Computed example of a mutant assay.
Amino acid sequence: MIKVDHSLRRQRRAARDALRNAGTLAFKPVSSAQWTDVSVSRRGAIRVRIQHDDIAGVTPEMTQWWFENMAGTTTWNGVDFTGPEVLYYHLWHHRDHIRITPLTDAPDGTPNTGFRVGALSRIDEQFNDYRDRIHQVMRTTRLDSTEFTFDILGPAHIPAGYIIHRYAPVDGGVSFYAETVIDVRVPILGPVLNWLVRPFLFSRATADHWIRHNIEETGRTADILPAIHAAAHAPART
């Protein structure tokens, strides 16, 4: 179980204050998505899909940078960059997110500052009024200007599913599609575990909560990424 310590509470308050200062505290509603879908396959795997509302003011290259550096911090306070240090991840969802922890660098030695292809990262978050808790190791399999995908790893790093994000340029921003599949991929026992165990870990109700959470964080991107990305790429002062 993830304990909410005082540092986490301060971080969340700082993120909330920044969003309030910017006038963007409210989340997008589930109805903002173009469409959503939940299905269960014959082998007991569950798939959740969301075609999000387009993200305004963001490019595919900015989106790639965002995922590559998601473990970073900023002093953005919603107006300028004189506020307290706050995690990008908390700004993305001030209520549910806890932390992104890079566990390994990329196989080619590239430092992992969020997610990098071939690297391991751990996601800690909670949603559904804190009843659904995520403390999960992921292995990034693709991250470029069109797609960000990672495998969800179970015990002994057995693949237990994956999450796909696809984005493309549209007028004024990017389109954004997200897909989560929970599917234990082990010989013979995989379907058995999917039908008997998977519903206790990720049920149709969990899928509905994940849809809400994902729409809220994705919808937040337009509120925070343009300012953060511009600051991170501003010419160094001499």
Rank of each mutant, 00 (worst) to 15 (best):
E85L: 13
V58P: 11
W65V: 00
W66L: 05
I98A: 14
D53V: 04
W92G: 08
I98N: 13
T59R: 06
V86A: 12
M62D: 04
I98D: 13
R95W: 14
R95Y: 13
D96C: 13
T73M: 14
H90I: 12
V79T: 14
A56I: 03
W66K: 03
W76M: 09
E85N: 15
W66T: 01
D54T: 08
Y88C: 06
T63G: 01
P60C: 03
M70Q: 09
G72M: 08
Q64W: 01
V86F: 15
I100D: 00
P84I: 09
R95K: 15
G78E: 09
H90W: 13
I50W: 04
T63K: 00
I55C: 00
Y88Q: 02
Y88E: 02
G83A: 03
T63Y: 02
H97Q: 11
G83T: 07
T74M: 04
G83R: 01
W92Y: 11
H94C: 15
H93A: 11
E68Y: 00
I50K: 04
D80E: 10
I100R: 01
T101K: 09
T101W: 09
I98P: 12
I55H: 01
T74A: 04
V79Q: 10
W65R: 00
P84V: 08
V86R: 12
Y89N: 07
T63C: 04
R99K: 14
W92N: 09
H52S: 05
R95Q: 15
G72R: 10
T59V: 01
W92V: 12
D54G: 05
T101P: 15
G72A: 11
M62Q: 09
L91T: 05
L91M: 04
Q51S: 15
N69P: 05
V79H: 10
D96A: 14
E68I: 01
H52Y: 04
I55P: 06
T101V: 12
T82H: 09
T101M: 09
T101Q: 11
W65G: 00
W92L: 11
Q64L: 00
V86P: 13
T74V: 07
T75K: 08
T73N: 15
W92C: 10
G72Q: 11
Y88P: 00
W76Q: 06
L87W: 13
F81N: 06
Y88M: 06
A56K: 11
F81V: 11
H94F: 14
R99T: 15
H93L: 11
R99D: 15
T74R: 01
I100C: 05
D80N: 12
D53Y: 02
D53S: 07
W65F: 01
V79G: 08
G78Q: 07
Y89D: 08
V58N: 09
H90P: 11
T63Q: 02
L87G: 13
H52C: 06
D96K: 12
E85P: 11
L87E: 14
T74G: 03
T75I: 05
D54S: 10
E85S: 15
W65T: 00
N77M: 07
A56W: 02
N69F: 01
F67C: 01
Y89Q: 07
D80K: 10
